[in-house]
Amino acid sequence: MTPNKEDYLKCIYEIGERKEKITNKLIAEMMQVSAPAVSEMVKKMLAQDWILKDKVAGYLLTDKGQLLVTDLYRKHRLIELFLIQHLHYSTDEIHEEAEVLEHTVSDHFIDRLEILLGHPDFCPHGGTIPKKGQPLIEINHQTLAETQQTGNYKLVRFHDNFQLLKYMEEHGLEIGLEFELTEIDPYAATFTLAYNEKNLAIPKLIAKEIYVLAR
């Protein structure tokens, strides 16, 4: 499989994880390619039984496609952890490097890497690292945007994209941070967090990419 096809599969998985209808337009926006390019790739992926069309979801990963995606995430997340723990990369540096390496390293290399790292359960961003041959089931799956009650929570996961990483760093938001959700404003579509003697109103668009656990 080519790196381009692998990226399309991950794109479809990530859009689906946000519970949006997976359309050609959304794929094009996320992949930063033209609509005709998406249409051509979707045809190939349908023909190879990696995805199927669905009236409600737009596209769905088949079992075959899900296994491929799981393997990609296992590679990517183990590589990210290695880059931070052993090569001392910063959190905003690891994603691009891992994107390149995940397409080039062998399964044998990843198996050995997993042993070296002690069979970890989570990547630096809190994403679940699937075990070899096992499906990818995210342990932390409640987003801040889905939270309906104020109270005490812990930040346990966030999506892996550069702009979000810079936002998190700027506001001192990191995995393991304990905070109080003091206000949910439906009109302004914001979620106000109190932590480290500060208050931060997070827009719903960003709250959809942050995962929390009630304390």
Score class of each variant (00 low, 15 high):
6 E>N: 07
7 D>G: 08
7 D>T: 12
11 C>L: 08
12 I>K: 01
23 T>E: 03
29 E>I: 04
31 M>R: 09
31 M>I: 06
33 V>D: 06
35 A>M: 13
36 P>M: 03
37 A>N: 04
42 V>T: 05
51 I>G: 11
55 K>H: 12
60 L>P: 07
63 D>I: 11
75 K>M: 11
77 R>K: 04
79 I>S: 06
80 E>P: 14
96 E>W: 10
107 D>V: 03
107 D>S: 07
107 D>E: 06
108 H>D: 15
110 I>Q: 13
118 G>P: 04
121 D>F: 11
125 H>V: 02
126 G>D: 05
130 P>F: 14
132 K>H: 11
132 K>Y: 13
135 P>G: 03
140 N>T: 06
141 H>L: 01
141 H>E: 02
142 Q>I: 06
142 Q>L: 09
144 L>G: 00
144 L>D: 00
147 T>H: 02
156 V>C: 01
158 F>V: 03
160 D>R: 06
160 D>S: 15
161 N>V: 02
163 Q>V: 03
169 E>W: 04
173 L>F: 15
173 L>W: 07
175 I>C: 06
177 L>Y: 12
178 E>R: 12
179 F>Y: 03
180 E>G: 01
184 I>N: 00
191 F>I: 01
194 A>E: 05
207 A>I: 14
208 K>D: 06
215 R>Y: 09
